[in-house]
Design a protein around this nucleic acid. Sequence first.
DNA 1: GTTGACCTTACCATGATGGGAAGGTTCATA
DNA 2: TATGAACCTTCCCATCATGGTAAGGTCAAC
Lengths: 157, 157
Amino acid sequence: MNIGQAARTSGVSAKMIRHYESIGLVPPADRRDSGYRDYGVADLHRLGFIRHARDLGFSLDRIRVLLDLWSDPGRSNADVKAIAEAHVRELEERARQLNEMADALRSLADACDGDGRPDCPIIASLETGAEAPACHRNPDPMAPESPARRGKTRTKR
Amino acid sequence: MNIGQAARTSGVSAKMIRHYESIGLVPPADRRDSGYRDYGVADLHRLGFIRHARDLGFSLDRIRVLLDLWSDPGRSNADVKAIAEAHVRELEERARQLNEMADALRSLADACDGDGRPDCPIIASLETGAEAPACHRNPDPMAPESPARRGKTRTKR
DNA sequence: GTTGACCTTACCATGATGGGAAGGTTCATA
DNA sequence: TATGAACCTTCCCATCATGGTAAGGTCAAC
């Protein structure tokens, strides 16, 4: 099967299949006389594995390790679980940071009238680095919880 | 003031200050006879603005727009607010996707015994693309709500 | 006048992916 | 049989924000 069909079947673009081959994530594909790559079911299986791991946000480096474990009949599921849990923690940490930024910016946006005048607490905060002053924040009428949740935690990046 | 001092004062690395100059995010710095860049308070102010916007996750392209609005005395805070709100939505969407991945992987990891044997629902799921089967998931003893929560971003936040 | 800390430009690398050019192959159809 | 569309090949470049390094110039203190 051609690389295009393999791409459509596996959900991995032809561009990426070639890339994965170039970095050794998949073995060099068989070639026909024409030089075209030729894929079989085992190749599709491996590409599918990579695809699913990418869908879960694993980096290609970690996928390399997962592929090794996959092909190791004597693997320990404790190793797999440890990798997965480390990745879960990273995903949650990144999500937490994004939510922190979103919350901070939401506070600023809520404090901005948006009435067409130049005055703007968002711009003011970017100038000074100060967060939205509580006394100017429009209270959220839908707030289901205690509003005392924004700490300081300025991520250093 | 030298670029190093400007970097320490503004929290933007010297490397990045030069980069911002090269892409036109900050105007070309004054130069001394030696060729050294020379920064004043206005420059530090601008760098601080950029730094704070980066801390909120804005891309350099959007920061460019924010800087234009900042320096426009006739700006409309509605424009600023619109940009901020669009960015908040993007941040939240990205966080949601990360949490979705984390939740899916957490389910798989919870279903994995981690007892050292090769059997592993995580590997199995990567092979087939199937999610963790409910009948194998270890129930969460702390679950405060109905167990039908998959697919929604419901981590603590 | 030497030394060490600073500055300059220029190039390369990251990670995962896409775009495109220049040229060869396959296959159905006119 | 010829042609054209759709495919394939390799190679290079771009993204985005940031860091590293190298080769060389400047400054200030001792």
